[in-house]
Design a protein around this nucleic acid. Structure first.
Lengths: 214, 214
DNA sequence: CGCTATCTTGACACCTGTCAACCGCAGTGG
DNA sequence: CCACTGCGGTTGACAGGTGTCAAGATAGCG
């Protein structure tokens, strides 16, 4: 069991992967530090999420705490042993990877949107979906605006403007910068499409079920 | 064993998932038909790739043949039985999902680039990486320009201009529309970053190895 | 109460989407 | 053998949105 302060780096991409982690409380971001300046965030992880996938014994991404985090640290050697004989664990493992895969694909779908409002609308839908278990009727954004920007592939300024637009169009409202409420769900869904086309988008309310491949 | 003609749909998202597929020859695209007009392509699959992942018994994406395709069709019931007892198969299964996950993350990284040339540069790097097994020194693009556009999240016109730019900058050359050669690898890597920043990007030459999570 | 980090807002340039015309090629039929 | 047509792709003109940069506002914290 380990703790990380807000902003603290948990591990860095490329370094030897000695352990995987299971979040107990808090929020973690996975990212690639894109060479020079800022990086790109590939995902936000919530309690119960497993992370620390390695390739050839080295972490493929970097991970850092978005807020105070407590997590279980599982040495790979131990995990490997358990995996070999524990069918239940294998199941969880596969389910986790499948979950991350679907998240990554939704993320790609988000990034494929060209309009700032569409990206943010989808971002909010994603966050709501991830939090559907806990509270309700209000989305809590644990990350700051810069993290949002790095996740949706835009700049700080564009994110700010985008949220303002969403509010101006009556889709959302906000108590403060981190608490957003979806006022008009239908409007938000329409904004999630490029021009404002027809409606659709099934939230697909069903966490962590998987079957075969891709 | 089944065959599909170029452009033929293999399955459609949402319909009951009765089977998963293993590509023997050809190229398949996975996509989400984004409601109204065109869709977004989430990935291209090559021989040896497994696909057909379902969620709650229904396919999560749609799949279609980019060119003539032959594949093995594996009924889920049979796969499920085998999976329960065959450790080797389980391993392949997990490795496959991990592979798709990494691909999805690379795809997201591509989509996070704002410049057309950067996206296309990364696209070419991805394609080269996927084909590193087969031929060499020349990349074959089995998909048409529209498919490329739907994968990199741009329009046909922008893709066309983007390739022209890459060539004008001396990074690539092309025999015909589907055969691209990387002339100046370093230039391409620099173009893969936004402004043309510093160099990096490890191709990470290592297919299908996985270990723990994310 | 002031300081700093975070966030918002404004002005402007550039890039990419849009729309349309044009080109090259393959298949078709005369 | 050659127009005709259709598809895939390229190119051009233009407008709109987003990045960039900088200034101003707000919130968090000592």
């Amino acid at each position: 069991m380990v703790r990380f302060k807000k902003g603290e780096e948990i591990y860095s991409g490329g370094e030897p992967a000695h352990a995987i982690f299971n979040i107990s409380a808090g929020v973690v971001k996975m990212y690639q530090s894109a060479g020079h300046g800022r990086g790109h965030i590939t995902g936000f992880l919530y309690p119960q999420d497993l992370f620390g996938l390695s390739e050839e014994g080295r972490y493929t991404n970097s991970a850092a705490a978005v807020m105070g985090v407590t997590a279980y640290r599982l040495p790979v050697s131990a995990v490997r042993q358990q995996l070999a004989k524990d069918a239940e664990l294998q199941f969880h493992f596969i389910a986790s990877v499948c979950h991350h895969l679907r998240q990554a694909q939704r993320h790609a779908l988000l990034l494929a949107q060209r309009r700032a409002t569409a990206r943010l609308a989808r971002f909010l839908q994603l966050q709501e979906y991830l939090q559907s278990a806990s509270a309700a009727s209000e989305i809590y954004l644990p990350m700051d605006r810069l993290d949002v920007a790095d996740y949706v592939g835009m700049t700080l300024a564009a994110v700010s403007r985008g949220f303002r637009d969403l509010e101006a169009r009556g889709a959302i409202s906000h108590r403060d910068r981190r608490h957003v409420k979806i006022v008009d769900r239908k409007a938000l869904e329409e904004l999630a499409f490029e021009i404002g086309g027809a409606a659709r988008t099934r939230p697909s309310r069903s966490n962590r079920r998987f079957e075969p491949l891709h």
